[in-house]
Structures are given as structure tokens and as C-alpha cells.
Design a protein around this nucleic acid. Sequence first.
DNA 1: CTGCTCCCGGAAAGCGCATTCCGTCCGTCA
DNA 2: TGACGGACGGAATGCGCTTTCCGGGAGCAG
Lengths: 361, 361
Amino acid sequence: MPAVTLSEVARAAGVSPATASRVLNGSSRIPGADIAERVKAAAAALGYIPNAQAQALARSSSGLLGLIVHDIADPYFSSIARGVQSAARELNKILLLTSTEGTPSEERLAVEAFTSRRADAIVLAGSRSTRPEDDAANSALLREAYRYLANGGRLVLAGHDLVDPSAHESRGHGDAAFTVGTPPVLIDIPNESLACRLARALGGQGHSRFLIVAGPEGLMTSDLRVAGFQRGLAEQGLESAEVLRAAFNRDGGFGAALELEDKVREAADSGNPYCIFAVNDRMAMGVVAALRHCGLQAPADYAVAGFDDINTLEDFIPGLTTVRLPLEEIGRSAAEAALTGADPAPASGEVVLRESTAPAS
Amino acid sequence: MPAVTLSEVARAAGVSPATASRVLNGSSRIPGADIAERVKAAAAALGYIPNAQAQALARSSSGLLGLIVHDIADPYFSSIARGVQSAARELNKILLLTSTEGTPSEERLAVEAFTSRRADAIVLAGSRSTRPEDDAANSALLREAYRYLANGGRLVLAGHDLVDPSAHESRGHGDAAFTVGTPPVLIDIPNESLACRLARALGGQGHSRFLIVAGPEGLMTSDLRVAGFQRGLAEQGLESAEVLRAAFNRDGGFGAALELEDKVREAADSGNPYCIFAVNDRMAMGVVAALRHCGLQAPADYAVAGFDDINTLEDFIPGLTTVRLPLEEIGRSAAEAALTGADPAPASGEVVLRESTAPAS
DNA sequence: CTGCTCCCGGAAAGCGCATTCCGTCCGTCA
DNA sequence: TGACGGACGGAATGCGCTTTCCGGGAGCAG
């Protein structure tokens, strides 16, 4: 039983397909009231549902919004997705979702798939990688993105700009072929400056010995947070922090903390405890879990701070000092910018001091 | 700059569109090697990307998989979404996502939108409502779902079957018009029996006074868990538990626990503490937070158990006794069943005893 | 050498809809 | 009363692709 088509409705109503089309969608020409009534009645009786594919083909707008995230099960991304979804619903678009595990090559594939689907707009969320081994994939992603733009799509980057491995020192993306179409819009998440402010806030609380548990080198979000944090320390005349690298997730934090145990314990015993900055909340949670496992408690034996303020933190013990990012808002305004072309509000963010870094008394 | 079309590629390669189409997709007829080479080269040179809308129209398969959840930011659903997404990727489908806030009317809208998009399959996750005020919306959802099925779609329900308010005592959905198309497939989540097992496990730990913090009446998931838990108590000859109703989320649990404070405190003081069963983990987390706020600790002053084993629980203190649901697996097999027509593996689940219900010593 | 089959490329007919363009009819103004 | 403009339905075209159907050439058997 194939779906009811517009011409069937037209026939049932005794009018031409053109007329039926005009009454069943918001055309500029509205047929007479009587005839419109007939058509609507016929459509309802037959249970007509327009074929969005055909509509998209005939108009030239699919009503689709693409969202690309690293991992939809990660609260960071699912919060963003929630914002995107809610904006999409309001604007009557429907959401195409892809999780890429963070690899640029998968992201490229996603952009390609969305291009193929003729998505009206794409929101690309999550950190970029600047690792040399990702150069090729980054270039490909960049090309794919600009191709999408050239085809009339809109692209908004939530967090970081695309990375162009070939542009060694220039600003912007060099290639002239890239100047076609709407340029991508960036919702900048000020990782560097917020991390700097976090460092200053922690310094202000009296902490003076720092350790950073970071993600892998070349992960832009992590790198920026590390850099900003170090800058914040430097600006206060504090010694820069040692950086330990691990996976950018809870287990990474857990593993790193295990390596740090002795150091942390000694510092605690010596009365000059460490303050650990984990570059995201999940890593921070891993750190806390690992050290608790070792019998070390925050804030008694060490201080710890995270970044993002994911909602998982709400009932986490100890309350985790972090930097709040309005994730859902970011998703919302990314989607709105992508769909309407409006300039996005810049992402804000604020330091939230909680129990985990309670000032050494 | 409109996108490159197939005929442009064909022209560039000096062949007909038909031939180009045959080489650029997996047609059953593969043109000669030399000609195929030419076409591929032309496609690559021009940067051809097929228009999936047009393909969908011409074939009759969109390559789309629809997923409907209550709230994508809820770890319960984002875990399911992760599983769905990963299966979709493997099967080369792309995901349409909608969050409905759990209202049947939004769910109906989502099904309609997916029907309009000609999604190959739809996965509908989350609890159904049996509240009388949702009767109309449930009927509409049911009709919409069967219309989708009649149009050749596949539907899999992850968790509960659709509710048919008009079928008072019959099994199945009565209306004869409903018999067209593939019937919906259900991935049953055995809420009732698992809750029963949880009750028995807790009874086995020596708990004997129970309280249930449930969701609103008529929320099927909640109702089943309550019923199963009571049955489990009864089977052990234990008194049935008092049920307190609140919103089906963290704040609901929090609020309910606040009302329970005196009762819980008295019981703790009397040496015969309560064991509280919150029908989902987030409610349980709310309960713990509220009671901690009141100075009551689990498992010392009361015991508490949840349901779902969402991954947020990993670092929650105290470790929360719960029922583990393989959420990501459920998503996976739902998607696979929806896409391939394979029979889904029934969802399992197991009681996980943790510190929060440590046996009263 | 003729006749048949098989294979392969191209022409053409849609898929379901939007929209431009026409023809017609009516109303209006001179 | 005649001419003209406007409004309104319908016919037709095209969006980009797939697929059936054709026709011609090559290969083979008789």
C-alpha cells in the first residue's frame, strides 16, 4: 500500500494537482475557499502526507539540520544536542544526527552525507585536532566543508574554527576556491581565557601548587585550556604547572591520577597540597575517583577543578569547582545561526567555585 | 553555485546519464571497465555528490532511520541513542532525531514528520502514558504509527508497546485497518520482573521496611516498576510499600525525599531504617541529595536503590544499588531490528547491589 | 553466409511535488 | 456595449535520479 500522493488527493477533490498543491502548502496563491475546503477534506479523508523528499527536490530546501558531535552519550554533547533540537523544532526543521568519535575523517563523511541530503545547515560541534597525523583528514574535512558551503549550505562551528593544515601562518583559509558561498560562522568558546580566569580564581583562593591533567596533545580544546591556565598562573607570578597527558575522558583522568598518587600524597603530608586542574569534568571525576580509591580526599588532601559544568556534576561529591559553559544555549544559538543566518551570541562562561577547591584553611 | 548533477558528470564523461548512474552506484548492470573509469574520473574531477533526495524519490528508500526519545540530554536516552547511531552507521543509514519531552502528541508529530521524510524505519523509545488525559493523543499516535506501517515503514518500540485507549480488554490493537504492513516489533524491557527481582534481592539483604518514590501515575515504566517491586515484596511475605509520587526526574526525587525526611529520620533512630526504591536512577540521585541535605546518609541511616544503571552513576557516592539495563545494546538491537527486520534480542537486565543498600549490620 | 541470441549503451518514462505560464471568465471602466 | 485588466484553474515543465525498455553490434551455431 503505497502512500497517498498529491494527485490522488487532487483527483478525489476533482481539481488539478497544481491546485491541490497550492491549498495544501503555504503557496502565495490561495485558491477559492470552496475549492480549498474540498481539497482539505479529500486530503484528510485519504490521510495524505506530503512526500518531503519530493518537496525538497522541487523546492530546493530540505528542511533538514545536520548536527555532528563526537559522542552523543557524552553529557557535553547531549546538552548541546538538546539545545540544537529545541531550536530546530521551533524553526520547523528536523535534525540529522551523527556521532563521529571525534575523528576528522568521520566528520568529513558526516559532512558529505549531509551535503548529499541537501541539509539546509550543519552544526559541527566538538574539539578539532591539530595533530600532524590528522593533517590529511583535516584538509579533507575542510574541503568538504567548503564544498558544502559552495553548494549553498550554512555551516556553524560550535567551539573551534576548522583547522587548515596548509595555512601555516595565514589567518583564514587560503585557497581562493574557498571564497564561494556563505562563510562558516564560528561560535567561539573562549577556552583559553576561561581557563585563565579559573587559574586566577584558584590562585585567589590561596592555591599555589598546580598540576594539570590534560587530554592528548593536539586536541585543541585541551591545548587551549592548558595554555590559558598556565597564563593565568603566570600572571599571578605562580610557577607554571606540570602537565600530565591522558585520554580526554573519565578513564583518562582516572589513569592519570593513579600515576599522581605518590606526588599528591606527599604534598598533602607536607602541608602544601596540590591543586589539580583536569581539562574537563569527566577527567576531573576520574581523578577524584582514582584518588579516593587511594584514600585521598578533596578538598582535604588536594584540590581539584574541572571544566564544562556538565549536568552530571549536579550531585557529584565533592561539589566540583569548574567553568560553567552554557552548553544548551550554545546548541540553541548555533542552530539558530545556522538556520536563520542570524549572528550568534558569543558563548559566555563563568568560573564556579565549589567544595572541591575549598581554600586550604 | 548549484551542486554538480549526474548529467553534468555524464556529459563530461561523454556518456548518457543512465550509464553514469549505473557506474556511480551499485547497480546490477556494470558498464565496461574503460567507460566506468571515465565516469569515475569525471565525477571526482567535478566533485560530484549525489542528491540523496532525488535518489530516495527514484528508488523508494530514503536511507533514513528515525529515532524518537523523550529527552536527548537524559543519559538514559543518550545511551540508547548511542547504540542506535552506531548500528545506523554500520548499516549505512543516517539518523533523524527528535526529542519529544515525552508527550504523546509530540511523538505523533515526530512519527508524522518521519513518515513524510519516508524514513525506512523508526525507533520509538521511552515510556508510554496510560493517563486518561492522554487517551486522545495516544489514539492519534497509534493511528499515525499504523499509517506509517501501512506505508511500508518498520517500527520498533524500545521498552513498551503502544497503548490503545480504545482496546479495553483485548490484546493487540483491534481495528482491522491496522492489519496492513509489517506489525510493529517490541523490544520488551522487563520492568516488572526486574523490579520484582530487585525487591527480592533487597529483601535478601535483610531490608524489611520499604518506601517507593515513583513517577506520576499512568507513566507505564514507573507503574510497572512499582507493581513488580510490590509483587517481589509480597512474594517474600513482606508488607507492601507506601508509594509517593513525584516527577519522573531528579528534582522529583529530591522533592519527594524532602517530604519523607521525618519518616526516614524516625526510622533510622528507631533502628529499623527504611529502604527506599526510587523508580529510576535520577530520582534516586535526587533522593540521596535531598536526604544528605537533611543530614541523613545512605546506607547508615537509610537504604536506597534506583533503576537503569545510567552511566552517570559510575562515580556517584554512595554507589547506588540499581537494576542495570543494557541501554546501548537496546538501542543497537532496536536499530538493527528496525533496519534489517531481524528479530531483536530480548532486553536483559540484572540487579546490581552496591553500597547504598549495604545490609544493615 | 545467414539467423539468432546476448550484451551493452542510450532514450525515455517516471518518482511526487512546486511553479511558471496560459487560457478563460468575470468584472470594470469608458 | 466594447475593450481591457485581473483573478483563478489547469496544463506543462522540471527538480536529479533510477530503471525499464530499445536498438544495434558482436558472437556463435547451423
